[in-house]
Design a protein around this nucleic acid. Structure first.
Lengths: 113, 113
DNA sequence: ATAAACCATAGACTATGGTCCATGGTCAAG
DNA sequence: CTTGACCATGGACCATAGTCTATGGTTTAT
């Protein structure tokens, strides 16, 4: 499908899709026409983009998501230990929460002085 | 004092001091010499920079710190209601904590499925 | 045939808090 | 008198996740 179709099916802007593509996060992007240089985006990119959106909700960064895709591409049969990935992210989130709570405490002390 | 001295007394790099200066966060910066264009930084900038460091620990942004300085400069006699400022910051911090806790919950649900 | 809609590429721009570099002038010690 | 340390200015660069614009080519509908 062309980029416009992919954009429609995912709700992502063309620019954003091109941005992801530039980061190497999409797969099976070809240029099948001889008379123009339009690209063709494989169907599986719909799912990829949905995964990007999904993981971003958990504050995964694009580079991390790309790494997951790369692992999958390099080793399609090996099942990625998702729970491992999510557990790592959980730890980071909890660390951030802790830091903010430290800040909160300090602020409360200031206010109550 | 010259910038090197200010740097020594505060532990901030020259570049950072110039950066703050460019943001208009310093005061009483003059060019008192006719034979060169070296600047003179008033003593009160030591305190200013300490305040910057202090407020940054509570995740104040430079622009917010600058606003506080500007208020003080415009109205040196009026006491700034610090507790108001800190309370506002507290609310923002608490909102961020809440958002992270939402994310944490969602992550926990994924992991435990 | 012409306009609207589409496609590609490259680069600039946003916020944040700096850091680093190049250029050129000045000052202090040996 | 020269070297090293200091000073000033301006601009480039870092990460992050895009957005927007310019330019030019293509396709589709009227």
């Amino acid at each position: 499908m062309k980029i416009g179709e992919l954009s429609k099916q995912t709700g992502m802007s063309r620019d954003t899709i091109r941005f992801y593509e530039g980061k190497g996060m999409l797969t099976n992007v070809t240029r099948p026409f001889e008379w123009n240089n339009y690209k063709n985006y494989g169907e599986e990119n719909v799912k990829r983009i949905q995964i990007i959106k999904y993981l971003q909700r958990f504050s995964f960064r694009l580079i991390e998501i790309k790494e997951l895709f790369d692992q999958k591409d390099a080793n399609p049969d090996k099942c990625i230990d998702k729970s491992e990935v999510f557990k790592n992210k959980l730890k980071i989130i909890e660390k951030e929460i802790n830091e903010l709570q430290q800040t909160r405490k300090a602020l409360l002390e200031i206010i109550n002085d």
